[in-house]
Amino acid sequence: MKKIKKLAKILISLTDDKSEKEKEEIIKFFLVILRQRKKIHLAKQILRELGREKRKKEVMLNFARKLDEKIVAEIKEKLKGLFGKEKEFKIKIQEELIGGFLAKSQNYLIDASIKGLINKLRTHGNV
């Protein structure tokens, strides 16, 4: 597991700030090395780990409907203070939220949606 993590981190550091073409070349080269060292069976796990590492930097920002860009920028600015400045925001429209927003990173969640409020009400008696 540690080895896979290490390899995924190496791959991320190599491809960081590179163009798409360069990235493709690096990955091809990486796979060749894996095959030469008879470690190609680890490729799937490394890929999964890559996704996980990438998600660490991501914050999913879900809205019920498309909002004015100014409001979105304001929300992002506020959230950067809470999640960290290096985070990348991915915006998604999720109608079932009814209203408000839901921000989710790998370790943290801010649920300021109407759906969340209703859920809180629903589970209130059980707590």
Partner: peptide
């Protein structure tokens, strides 16, 4: 019961 509830969106560990 509703008054007791906190509706403010908080940062929670998940």
């Amino acid at each position: 019961e509703i008054e007791k509830l906190e509706f403010e969106g908080k940062k929670e560990e998940i």
